[in-house]
Design a binder for these strands. Structure first.
Lengths: 242, 242
DNA sequence: GACTTGAGTTGGTTA
DNA sequence: TAACCAAGTCAAGTC
């Protein structure tokens, strides 16, 4: 990893064109030549970047005043670059050009391999909890199976309600319109099967957008808000019973 | 901006739990205390981070050997931390804890305000070009309007073809299944209006996934590939005529 | 390898 | 402020 702190300007050309005016920023260059430009602004996303695989060409302009003056453009506000980084994508014509002016730091450190991040618990967890606590969709309900396979993909949970009717459940962390569309496709398909029909649909999520709720209810689906902490608590109290 | 290069381990607890084992990494701490942890892996996304607004507590363990030995846990592989960074989110209970072992660099630099990124050319641009060059959907077509309002949201472009039939156009940079669903909803709604029906649907994008194309054509929609550069070129040659 | 879906998504626009 | 939608999305899993 190479870390540069410098006043710079940058131009990106690829799926879009984007430019960064002259300012002081932090530039990270990884071992694979991918390049990230940060300011104090924003969250974890860099202002501009080049993804690997890519190649980096570095031109030092300090020795060649003629070339150096050529490199000045209208965005430099009269400043003179001392270095140009040209980062080219290998699989496309994307280019990121960074001009460096005053370099405050330029340090390198070999980080070596990273063991990587260990994650635990997202949508999968919601599905697991609801499968374990299937009566949250109605007393007397029974689980058929998680990831119930169909021709157009797996239904998150299939269950049977107290009246013996099949229930297809679509689970999302946040329920939007496309989740309702997904549930619609499943129910449409499942209801074509005379052995399964009638199949009810339940749209279950931690949060559901108003538009999605309206659409879901309009299509006869029930909306179910899932409380992650409550479900987690229920799991624990279940465990303490034994 | 503060830049630390050090061997470290980290724990995040929030919407998920995630942990980073002992390894050398780069840690950026912005002026707003938001914190990013990078390795040579991955693209622009840090391995772990804390978004602003948040607070940072820094504990130096070098003076207190008792505390220091307490801070050793099973993931440290026998190493002894010299510093702990505790980053707490202000609006939730999210916590990121970073333990530092050997610190190679710890530098700070005030970057100041950033003028920000200037972008050009995304979906909005595609919509603008197609509106200007509406005959790309068929000779004799006329533009009705961009962002044609309906009860379920604006249709990207409404037009009338050479036969006087209404045409609803959904534009995407990349056309996937949900784009087809979107177009389906619009056409369904618009065709309920006796003043508008029959309304044709066109699915226009720079790229269209095979599944989306199949679904779109199955529903009677035309698929139109948009060439950004060609449309941009057409705009320019239009201009040079005058 | 192409495609689909989720993400601690982030970020911008509009009602 | 809340909801909705696009992103140079990225990344993981599946076919």
């Amino acid at each position: 990893m190479r870390i540069i702190v410098a006043t710079c300007s940058a131009e990106y050309s690829g799926r879009l064109n984007a430019s960064l005016p002259y300012a002081k920023r932090v530039i990270l260059i990884k071992a694979d030549c991918s390049c990230l430009i940060f300011s104090e602004l924003g969250s974890y996303k860099p202002l501009n970047w080049m993804a690997a695989p890519c190649t980096l060409k570095e031109r030092d302009l300090s020795a060649d005043e003629a070339e150096r003056s050529e490199a000045i453009d209208v965005n430099d506000e009269g400043h003179t670059p001392c270095k140009i980084l040209d980062v080219h994508a290998q699989k496309s014509s994307d280019v990121l050009t960074v001009k460096l002016y005053d370099v405050e730091y330029d340090i390198s450190s070999d980080l070596g391999l990273d063991p990587g991040l260990v994650k635990e618990g997202v949508e999968d967890q919601l599905q697991r909890y609801l499968a374990e606590q299937i009566e949250r969709i109605g007393q007397g309900s029974r689980l058929v199976r998680r990831e119930y396979p169909t021709a157009i993909g797996p239904v998150d949970i299939m269950a049977v309600d107290s009246e013996g009717h099949n229930v297809a459940i679509e689970i999302k962390r946040h329920g939007g319109i496309d989740g309702v569309e997904q549930l619609t496709r499943y129910c449409e398909l499942l209801n074509r099967d005379p052995l399964l029909t009638p199949v009810r649909g339940i749209f279950a999520a931690q949060t559901i957008s108003p538009q999605a709720r309206t659409l879901a209810e309009d299509r006869g689906f029930e909306c179910l808000i899932l409380d992650y902490d409550e479900m987690k608590g229920t799991e624990n109290s279940d465990l303490t019973l034994f």
